[in-house]
């Protein structure tokens, strides 16, 4: 999954390996041709700070299952659930990002495929950036379902682009390198269904206890949501 096109061309290492990489954002080669970016993540740091003192938690990862995330989370003594959310989204609604996602039957089907878990099942959820690609009806249904399947006082980490007029944004696979560092691999570009400011996100997660924001260099808003 990391061999997708690098449509954004934002990888500093893409042109060659000469020259020192920037301190906060640098390129590294993985096994093949894919160039991965490594960057610090305050949101991730905050996420793990909140759950680090407990082991045996049940954590849901809505991104692509990757070796790094599986190893990192299971090494902390947690049980990991993986659900390739965007893949299920594509399977349900098609690849076209302008497709109508408001059909109640399809929404119900999608929730059954992607988030069919018992109430209060998870202690934490790694949402990553997947909510950006949902239109309002589907997004509200997903957030409602997330609220159901997490325990009170649990934490979720989500990413939203902060730009107000982007046509398409890069979407990534996120790999946990350290408690405060992510390795990201761009999969391509995709048009977000909605863009949010802080107020919009607070409204979206209004049922949750609190929402905390961290703005990154890439104008990516990292959000910690407490249930």
């Amino acid at each position: 999954m990391l061999r997708g096109p690098r449509a954004g061309g934002t990888a500093p290492g893409g042109a060659g390996k000469q020259g020192p990489p920037p301190r906060a954002l640098f390129a590294s080669k993985s096994s093949g041709e894919a160039v991965l970016l490594e960057r610090p993540s305050r949101g991730l740091e905050e996420f793990f700070r909140n759950i680090r003192d407990t082991s045996g938690l049940t954590i849901l990862d809505l991104g692509v299952a990757t070796q790094q995330n599986v190893t990192f989370i299971t090494n902390l003594g947690h049980r990991l659930y993986a659900a390739d959310f965007l893949q299920i989204l594509n399977d349900t609604f098609g690849l076209d990002d302008t497709v109508d996602q408001s059909n109640p039957g399809q929404i119900e089907y999608f929730l059954k495929q992607a988030l069919d878990y018992p109430e209060g099942h998870f202690d934490a959820v790694l949402i990553w950036d997947v909510l950006e690609y949902l239109t309002p009806a589907l997004l509200n249904a997903v957030v409602e379902r997330l609220h159901k399947i997490v325990r009170p006082k649990s934490y979720m980490l989500a990413f939203f682009h902060a730009d107000n007029k982007v046509e398409a944004v890069p979407f990534y696979t996120f790999r946990i390198q350290q408690l405060d560092t992510l390795q990201v691999a761009q999969q391509g570009q995709r048009r977000p269904a909605q863009l949010f400011n802080n107020r919009g996100l607070e409204k979206l997660f209004g049922k949750f206890e609190s929402v905390k924001f961290f703005l990154t260099r890439e104008r990516l808003r990292e959000v910690i949501i407490k249930a």
Partner: peptide, 8 residues
């Protein structure tokens, strides 16, 4: 990379 997994 490229594998699909859903489950625990």
């Amino acid at each position: 990379d490229g594998a699909y997994f859903k489950g625990s």
